[in-house]
Simulated assay, not measured.
Amino acid sequence: MPASGSFGFGDVKAARLNDLNRLGAVVLKTTTKMAKKGNPQPQIVSFKEGIMNSVGLTNPGVDKVVEHKLPQLRTHYPNLPIIASLAGASISDYCVVAEKLDNSELVDALEVNVSCPNVAAGGMQFGVDPLVIQKLTSEIKKRVAVPVYVKLTPNVTDIIECAQAAKDGGAEGLTMINTLYGLRIDPQTRKPVLGNKFGGWSGPSLKPTAIRMICQVVHQVDLPIIGVGGISNAQDVIEMYLAGASAVQIGSAQFNDPAACWHILDELEPEMDRLNIESLSKLINEVKEGFQDER
């Protein structure tokens, strides 16, 4: 599935030119309570080894998403699983957005983006405090019927504690990982490459961190994991499954190849045949059993 932000609301050019029904699901751009214009330009800068972004959750606000974006997507794809991503500056904001998305009856699951500044905590990200993750997840779960996945930030010292907090709050699953907080400076201008100075780092160089964190969490916290971070080909997908993921999202790869999801799908079965992998579900069980044997 495409990672949040890479496919808009299913209305970007790549989505219009390709069959979304081939995907496991579509993950929408993150939605907030009110419309957001985003951060100063430039918001996205591409490098050979990855991408820096500080888009700032640009979106039209949850009311317009529910009234216009979701119905348009659902009309064209009545059977496609839709995962709505949401964020907020307070727990109350998150809950309002979650309720409106759930009440629309147009989404199949929610992905809670906890890499957002918590106004009540002086701007500290929700996702760095396990107690806040648990409370936020719990409050959302009280208000919605659809499954809730929490998208964890890698910018923490103990990812297992954060994952356990999401589970304790009632999450049905996790998405791992969001971008690494970083900075790039242009030697010619002597200024940060992004208009907002700091931003999220993604791309192939993120993959070892994502693989490590997924592997750590999957053997300690009993929740399914959607793996994301640095996937650009079929081998990367298989490596995510070997780490313990049950599904994957493709993000930065689509900046260079807008049809990356479909190209990777085309590569996947031949690569599985080459590696004598009968099915991805059996591969997941094989990996889990192998770790149990080692313990």
Rank of each mutant, 00 (worst) to 15 (best):
R74M: 06
C162A: 06
L28Q: 07
P154W: 09
V287C: 06
T209A: 03
P40R: 13
T179Q: 00
W201S: 00
L23E: 07
E289Y: 09
L268E: 02
T209Y: 08
A253T: 03
D108K: 04
I214F: 05
G50I: 11
Q216V: 01
G50M: 13
V107Y: 08
M34R: 12
I91G: 10
P42A: 04
K135Q: 15
G170D: 09
A259N: 15
K135P: 02
L20N: 03
S246G: 08
G88V: 04
D158R: 04
C261I: 09
A145E: 15
V45I: 04
A243K: 10
P258L: 00
A98F: 08
P154F: 07
E269N: 09
P130R: 07
F291G: 10
I159M: 14
F7S: 14
S115F: 03
V65W: 06
I133A: 01
N233S: 04
K37M: 14
P40L: 06
P224L: 02
F47L: 10
K37I: 14
E294F: 12
N196A: 14
H76G: 12
Q125P: 10
W201D: 04
M52Y: 07
V146H: 01
P224G: 04
Y77D: 03
V132H: 01
T157Y: 09
S104G: 12
C261E: 11
V107W: 09
D129M: 14
G38P: 08
I277E: 05
L131F: 13
S4Q: 01
N118K: 00
R212G: 10
T153C: 09
P154S: 09
N21M: 00
L23A: 08
P147A: 02
I44G: 06
L206E: 08
I133V: 14
K135L: 13
I83K: 08
V132Y: 09
